[in-house]
Simulated assay, not measured.
Amino acid sequence: MDFKFNHVKISGILSVIPENESFFEDEMGNYEFPPETSMKLKETMGYNKHRLAKPGSTIAGYACHGFNYLVENGLVRPDEIDALLVVGSVMDYPIPPTSNVIQGLLGLREDCFCLDITQACAGFEIGLIQAFMMLKQEAVRKVLLINADMLGLKVSPRDRNSYPLIGDGAALTIVEKSNYDNPVFANVKMDGKGAFAIQIPAGGLAKPCDESTRIDYVDSFGNWRSEENLVMKGDEVFMFVQKKVPPMIESLLEFAETSRDEVDYYMFHQPNRFMLRKLCRKLRIDEDKLPMNIVENFGNSSGVTVPLNICFNLADKIRDKALKLCMAGFGGGLVWSSILMNVGPLDFCEIIEYPD
């Protein structure tokens, strides 16, 4: 499905990352693989270090820490927020909605619209599309979009397939109406037939947690995990990304009547360096235009990787001028989505730590 919006803008992005940092070499003893094999994997996939939330961390905690930072620095006021969207793959509670919890903690107005959206790797794009649709309403002028995931708490430390690349964090994006012409082009596609390529098998209504779901088992590749841990079928995810993402980007550029060279940067979700390099070749994009250094510095924090990517790689540029960005997310669901728009100048674009 294609979308087109206008007179909207992103006015600021704040990324909130755990202060807790873990290095791949320190974790290799958890995996039942020879060290030389693990080091080859590090080089190929781009593993180095990642930021991991400590047990007990919550989306609400990270979101409130970030919002209070913005308020204290005069970058936003609580009474300005007309809608609050929280996007993540795992929320703080089954009930109540995490967005309502955050609304209460921040003291936002009672007529602030709150909504939880369960999305993973394409969560930033899905959240932006929802925010743009809300801004069509006369009563909505400013939306607070919160992307957050704490999947590091859901991955087995003995799972070499997932644990080295996973990361935690949150991003707060202010989206608002604009008086200026700023066309936004977006698309989104979903394929529920492949939904179980990325999953946490136990913990929901379909399979409640019990003693049996906590028992670790070993898969055919030597990875240990329980049914309460995240599991990714790496080969299926890789084929999905290589098959579906290039046509999506090409379709978006055609829809926007924009050439590849007119895009300043391609800010993609960050699964790993190997997958992104393959996408670069398929799309015939210069690697200088597609940063791929998030996993090696922070880990894969699902939908947070795109705003974190912008804060880490473009902050010095995008605070002062507009850049034409092609943003894309792809993964859990299966969902793949992309947005082409001018972003900047931004009121803020930075990274802060959450003091776990």
Rank of each mutant, 00 (worst) to 15 (best):
residue 79 D to A: 13
residue 57 S to A: 12
residue 160 R to T: 03
residue 164 P to G: 09
residue 312 F to K: 14
residue 350 E to L: 02
residue 303 G to M: 06
residue 40 K to F: 12
residue 32 E to D: 14
residue 203 G to A: 09
residue 25 E to A: 12
residue 190 M to V: 15
residue 15 S to I: 03
residue 262 E to G: 07
residue 61 G to Y: 06
residue 77 R to F: 02
residue 27 E to T: 12
residue 178 S to Q: 08
residue 184 V to K: 06
residue 329 G to V: 06
residue 66 G to C: 02
residue 334 L to D: 08
residue 246 P to A: 10
residue 2 D to V: 11
residue 33 F to R: 06
residue 70 L to M: 11
residue 18 P to F: 03
residue 348 F to M: 04
residue 141 R to G: 15
residue 338 S to E: 10
residue 58 T to M: 00
residue 113 F to P: 03
residue 30 N to W: 13
residue 39 M to N: 11
residue 337 S to Q: 11
residue 124 F to I: 01
residue 156 S to Q: 07
residue 42 K to P: 05
residue 94 P to Y: 09
residue 85 L to V: 02
residue 84 L to P: 07
residue 291 P to N: 03
residue 82 D to P: 09
residue 2 D to F: 15
residue 187 N to V: 07
residue 175 V to C: 05
residue 122 A to S: 15
residue 80 E to G: 00
residue 223 N to K: 05
residue 59 I to E: 00
residue 311 C to V: 07
residue 15 S to F: 03
residue 247 P to L: 11
residue 320 D to Y: 14
residue 62 Y to K: 00
residue 228 E to F: 10
residue 338 S to I: 05
residue 63 A to C: 04
residue 240 F to T: 04
residue 202 A to N: 08
residue 181 D to P: 02
residue 106 L to V: 11
residue 283 L to E: 10
residue 327 M to G: 05
residue 222 G to H: 04
residue 9 K to D: 10
residue 249 I to N: 06
residue 146 I to W: 00
residue 219 D to R: 08
residue 163 Y to K: 14
residue 174 I to C: 04
residue 65 H to S: 02
residue 197 A to F: 01
residue 312 F to G: 05
residue 282 K to I: 10
residue 341 M to H: 06
residue 159 D to S: 09
residue 131 A to N: 02
residue 196 F to Q: 12
residue 106 L to C: 11
residue 141 R to N: 15
residue 177 K to N: 14
residue 231 V to L: 09
residue 226 S to F: 05
residue 7 H to K: 15
residue 150 M to T: 01
residue 57 S to F: 02
residue 253 L to S: 02
residue 191 D to N: 09
residue 335 V to L: 04
residue 4 K to E: 12
residue 128 L to F: 02
residue 214 R to Y: 13
residue 349 C to L: 03
residue 142 K to P: 01
residue 189 K to S: 05
residue 28 M to D: 08
residue 224 W to K: 15
residue 240 F to M: 11
residue 132 F to Q: 00
residue 6 N to S: 07
residue 195 A to C: 14
residue 300 N to K: 05
residue 202 A to F: 10
residue 18 P to R: 00
residue 345 P to W: 11
residue 138 E to G: 07
residue 298 F to T: 00
residue 4 K to P: 06
residue 262 E to H: 10
residue 353 E to Y: 11
residue 270 Q to P: 11
residue 110 E to F: 07
residue 161 N to A: 10
residue 145 L to E: 00
residue 125 E to P: 08
residue 247 P to M: 09
residue 252 L to N: 00
residue 96 P to T: 01
residue 173 T to A: 05
residue 117 I to T: 10
residue 89 S to C: 14
residue 67 F to T: 01
residue 68 N to V: 08
